[in-house]
Simulated assay, not measured.
Amino acid sequence: MPLDTARPGSRPERLTAQEARRRLEHERASRLVQLKAIEEAGGEEGDHLMAAQKDSAQRVLKDIDAAFDRIEAGTYGTCQECGQPVPVERLEILPYARCCVGCQRRTA
């Protein structure tokens, strides 16, 4: 299972399920606030920037939901491309990351 319990006095190699959920909830809340602000701002009918921002926030929300699913399935923190662990530092910054940096670069 890719989620480990924290080891006292050392940096864990994996996020705990509780920590991963906390980070994902924070990201979800941030994106929902962002979407609300975009909707309240309204914008013009053809405002491409606002539409792009809204699409981006909605994509991230889908990625966050998929990360919650990976936690439940026991695959959170494992690269979906190569099967290796995603470094904890990457998950701390981008808790909904599906891939390690190397695989992300190859698929981008």
Rank of each mutant, 00 (worst) to 15 (best):
K36N: 12
A37D: 14
A29H: 08
K62S: 05
A66F: 08
G74C: 11
T75Q: 03
Q104I: 06
L61M: 09
R106Q: 14
A73F: 03
A66D: 13
A67T: 02
S30P: 02
Q58H: 13
E39Q: 14
C79L: 07
S30N: 13
C103A: 09
A37E: 14
H26I: 07
V33S: 04
P2E: 04
T16Y: 04
R7P: 02
M50F: 07
E19V: 11
D63E: 15
E72C: 03
A57Y: 05
P2H: 10
C79I: 07
R28T: 11
A57C: 11
E44R: 15
A97T: 05
A41I: 01
E72D: 15
H26E: 15
R22Y: 09
V60K: 08
L35A: 09
C82G: 03
D69G: 03
M1R: 12
G42A: 10
A20V: 02
I93F: 04
T107E: 13
A97G: 06
G43R: 04
C103D: 12
R11T: 05
L61V: 02
R31A: 07
V88W: 01
I38F: 07
G102N: 10
P95E: 08
A17H: 01
A41P: 03
Q104K: 15
Y76V: 00
L15Q: 01
Q104C: 04
H48C: 02
E25H: 10
A51M: 12
R106H: 11
C82Q: 07
R90N: 07
F68I: 00
A108K: 13
L24H: 00
K36T: 11
D4A: 13
G83Y: 11
R28L: 08
M1D: 06
I71V: 12
E72P: 01
V88D: 03
A29V: 09
G77Q: 02
K54W: 06
L91I: 14
M1Y: 05
Q58G: 06
D4E: 12
Q18R: 15
R106E: 14
L15W: 00
I38W: 03
Y76D: 01
L94K: 11
A108D: 14
P8W: 13
Q80N: 10
I64Y: 00
E27V: 08
C103Q: 07
G102S: 12
P2G: 11
R14W: 02
I38Y: 06
R7L: 12
T75C: 00
S56Q: 14
G74I: 13
K62L: 05
G9Q: 14
E27M: 08
E25R: 11
Q80E: 15
R106N: 09
V86F: 04
E89F: 06
P12I: 09
C99A: 06
R106D: 12
E40P: 07
